[in-house]
Design a protein around this nucleic acid. Structure first.
Lengths: 137, 137
DNA sequence: ATTATTGCAAAGCCTTTGCATCCTA
DNA sequence: TAGGATGCAAAGGCTTTGCAATAAT
């Protein structure tokens, strides 16, 4: 994703374009590691020592509200961010805390069809994902 | 669940039986509210003002390690406990943070069959659950 | 008697907040 | 230039830790 594409992403989210937002979005979108705020901070800090951790937190939150990144919580209660917006499931490694994507169209179709058929009473579903816990072998 | 049954549960977990463990297990098992440590503390504190919050945390953790309760993390990164050990999914209300159980045999069967058929390379699955985010209506 | 458990308070980790300064549109 | 974004430091919420006192086998 080049500078222009990132700028578009940010502006499309209805946000002002700033240098901080640029490099923070870049860091999140370039990895598949489900980064923590701390990890993002370390990435951007190398080239931009003046960016503060607080700004990283605020900016990531702004992105989540603008719907250009996703946020979720890992098994230790730490916030994780993800530039991939399509629905997908996660593999949580109980031993290393690594989180890997698990994408499978058949599974997604299966689940979508199930919930289309089985509406939940009194509950408006916004997002469904499968959490798979275990360990790498 | 009466006193004897709780005692059995604790002893079966390979743990010493103490008064604190008794009342803490009782509080967790009597609710379907996916309690936080704080909630458990408030419950037991009424009748047992000497039990400390630290003991509640340690005891809940001990129970998790002994496999007699489950632990997971809510959308805000707060630990939740659950006396129900069978696999089941959760409905997360984004607005109220309430967590409700969602049990559906057909869904569980669907998912079990899917993963029996589709082994994940290099990953040993220990637990699968479906996370459904949305809001009550 | 020995070893684990408890209570208390302090410390830790991650995250949010407040406010003055700075910058984008 | 007006209003939002940033940097910094302080505070906040939840959880863990250390240690002396206590209780269970």
């Amino acid at each position: 994703m080049d500078t222009e594409a990132i700028k578009d992403k940010i502006v499309q989210g209805g946000l002002k374009f700033t240098h901080q937002r640029m490099v923070i979005y870049e860091a999140v979108s370039k990895t598949h590691n489900h980064p923590t705020a701390e990890w993002v901070y370390e990435q951007v800090h190398e080239q931009n020592p003046s960016i503060s951790l607080g700004t990283v937190y605020k900016t990531l939150d702004t992105f989540v509200n603008a719907n250009i990144i996703q946020k979720f919580v890992d098994n230790n209660g730490v916030m994780r961010f993800d530039g991939i917006m399509e629905a997908h499931s996660h593999l949580y490694d109980n031993e290393t805390n690594e989180i890997r994507d698990y994408r499978n169209q058949e599974l997604e179709k299966l689940i979508k069809e199930f919930f289309d058929k089985n509406k939940i009473r009194d509950f408006e579903v916004e997002d469904i994902s499968v959490v798979i816990k275990g360990h790498n072998k």
